[in-house]
């Protein structure tokens, strides 16, 4: 039997909001160590890797490893039915055809159960090599979301250029161009708003605004975002999920024709 309980359904609601624009369906791999999801978007341009550790759940039991193919749209619909203060429990049998989502109100007076059919999926699982990145930028997730939103109005790509001095985001389009420069924070006491750059080598790469716009849907999960960039490899955009895990988005760069 598989059972995982979270006191705050809001975490799972935010996780679904962070993936539903990219993924139609995904396999949830459940084991003793927790729940892992790795899935590409339909166009195979980006990859989402979600990790929720078992010790981050309020209750977690997984008697045998399970691979559950889930419709993200259906799961998102179900999670919209949970109140923000509700406790959520995911439950499945050992060889499941369905998974149950059980929502319990904080006063325990309302109990709602939603059962979702699982789907058979034949997903390709990609091996992500251990990569040493030339630049790692930590910054406010809200600032990053704002930059993506603002610059997306001017072009279909955002070029990220990172040097020792700071990080520069640029978009160029038919109507004009836009750029935002962020200097590395000198005094990092305002931790959440600080811009911290670890740089071995300067980098400059372009990425599709469409995908970056999907990634920043994870902003409510964490006040900080970490961007890992190396020339000619996918960008990694990482948000921590409280004490329970993290979501990483990998995005293949755009290259000059």
């Amino acid at each position: 039997m598989f059972e995982a309980r979270l006191i705050q359904s809001s975490i799972l609601k935010k996780v679904l909001d962070a993936v539903k624009d990219l993924l139609n369906e995904a396999t949830f791999e459940c084991s003793d160590s927790g729940i892992q999801v790795q899935a590409m978007d339909n166009a195979h341009v980006s990859l989402v890797a979600l990790n929720l550790r078992s010790d981050g759940f309020d209750k977690y039991r997984c008697d045998r490893n399970l691979s559950m193919g889930m419709s993200i749209a259906t799961m998102s619909k179900i999670l919209k039915c949970a109140g923000p203060e509700d406790t959520v429990t995911l439950r499945a049998a050992d060889n499941p055809d369905t998974v149950a989502f059980i929502f319990e109100s904080s006063n325990k007076e309302k109990l709602a159960e939603y059962e979702m059919k699982l789907i058979n999926m034949d997903q390709e699982h990609l091996g992500i090599p251990e990569t040493f990145y030339s630049c790692v930028v930590k910054m406010s997730s809200h600032e990053f979301a704002r930059i993506v939103r603002d610059l997306s109005q001017f072009g279909e790509n955002i070029t990220i250029a990172c040097t020792k001095e700071g990080v520069k985001f640029t978009a160029i389009g038919d109507s004009g161009s836009a750029n935002v420069k962020l200097a590395q924070t000198a005094d990092a006491s305002e931790e959440n708003d600080a811009v911290i750059i670890e740089m071995q080598e300067s980098v400059k790469l372009s990425f599709s605004c469409r995908y970056l716009t999907c990634f920043v849907k994870a902003t409510p999960l964490c006040s900080q975002v970490q961007l890992s960039i190396s020339n000619d490899v996918p960008l990694v955009c990482e948000y921590k999920i409280g004490d329970i895990g993290q979501i990483r988005y990998y995005l293949a760069p755009k290259i000059d024709d």
């Binding site: 590409m40 990859l47 990609l126 992500i128 996918p234």
Partner: peptide
């Protein structure tokens, strides 16, 4: 013009 690479060009199928 820039063209979009595929993520599978970087990560191998396991």
């Amino acid at each position: 013009a820039k063209s979009q690479r595929n993520i599978m060009a970087y990560f191998k199928v396991r």
